[in-house]
């Protein structure tokens, strides 16, 4: 007689490398190379000298590392008559970015607060209009805004561009805050009202301290969005002196006469991408959460 306990017992032995696993990891690695390659190419190209680039292997690591292209891109590259490099665009972008982000987050958070806790007759209608507006191609609204800004005397200035970023950043950020605040229990809001807190007191003392993550998420979205903008910069800034970094980068790379300095171009490209990249790698999960929250409508 065989023992009743013979045959399979206990945990099933696992194969370390099953056929499925090889397919899964293999695919992921190949795809990961496609995604990682451009960043790698940017870095190695920006560290090579021109003679080495002309030898023609863009994937080869630099034989002789030089930081000269970075220095040139930052401080010497020319756009039009200005030859003080991308630093000019960088500081323009910073000057656009800071007020845009601060004001748009303030406005959007208060608007989201109104839409989630202090609804009034018609507030939802305006919100729907705002969200529909987010899907209208920007080109449709570009020229009327030129007129509005010209009337206000702000056309061509950095402040005008800040206002444009405020308007176009409003739908996504308002949605973000509104949905987050709507998840705060209504009873908390009622309790605060019974405790005698008014509109601003509830916002500052109850809602804001509970919502730090969403402020960070909104900041990430705004910083990357505004930093990466090209269309509004090129439309509403009239003088090359005040171009934001992306516009200046495009001008440096695409409108050079004579010999193209690919290493300088790639250094400039990397420099422009550095701010959003740093934010991306530093914020990790919050970035993912931000885009997921923004994408999945509420």
């Amino acid at each position: 007689m065989t023992d009743a306990m013979s045959g399979p017992r206990g945990a099933k032995p696992k194969k370390a490398l099953s056929r499925n696993n090889i397919i899964v990891y293999g695919t992921l690695f190949v795809v990961a190379i496609y995604y990682a390659l451009p960043l790698y190419v940017m870095i190695v190209t920006s560290l090579k000298g021109m003679p080495e680039i002309r030898m023609g292997n863009i994937f080869a690591p630099p034989m002789e590392v030089t930081f000269q292209p970075w220095v040139k891109a930052w401080a010497e590259a020319c756009t039009g008559i200005n030859c003080d490099g991308l630093s000019r665009g960088f500081w323009n972008s910073v000057r656009i970015l800071i007020p845009s982000v601060v004001i748009s987050i303030s406005v959007a958070s208060v608007t989201g607060y109104v839409l989630s806790m202090w609804k009034f007759k018609g507030s939802e209608v305006f919100f729907s209009m705002l969200m529909i507006g987010a899907f209208i191609p920007y080109q449709v609204m570009l020229y009327p805004i030129v007129i509005l800004l010209r009337e206000a005397g702000l056309y061509g200035s950095l402040s005008g561009l800040v206002l444009v970023h405020l308007a176009f950043g409003m739908p996504i950020n308002t949605l973000l805050f509104r949905n987050y605040f709507a998840s705060i229990p209504e009873e908390l809001f009622k309790a605060a009202r019974v405790d005698g807190a008014g509109f601003w007191a509830i916002f500052v003392k109850i809602v804001m301290p509970m919502s730090l993550p969403i402020f960070v998420v909104s900041m990430i979205i705004q910083v990357t969005g505004i930093w990466n903008d090209f269309l509004f910069g090129v439309t509403y800034i009239s003088s090359p002196d005040r171009y934001p970094m992306t516009v200046q980068l495009n001008n440096i790379v695409n409108s050079v006469q004579g010999v193209k300095e690919y290493n300088v171009n790639m250094a400039a490209t990397l420099l422009t991408g550095l701010v959003p990249l740093v934010i991306y790698f530093a914020s990790g999960k919050l970035f993912v959460r931000g885009i997921a929250a923004g994408a999945v409508k509420g």
């Binding site: 990682a36 992306t246 970035f287």
Partner: peptide, 12 residues
């Protein structure tokens, strides 16, 4: 790795 390009601008 798959998501970082999304942080970059179209210009870059």
């Amino acid at each position: 790795i798959f998501l970082y390009p999304f942080a970059l601008s179209f210009i870059v």
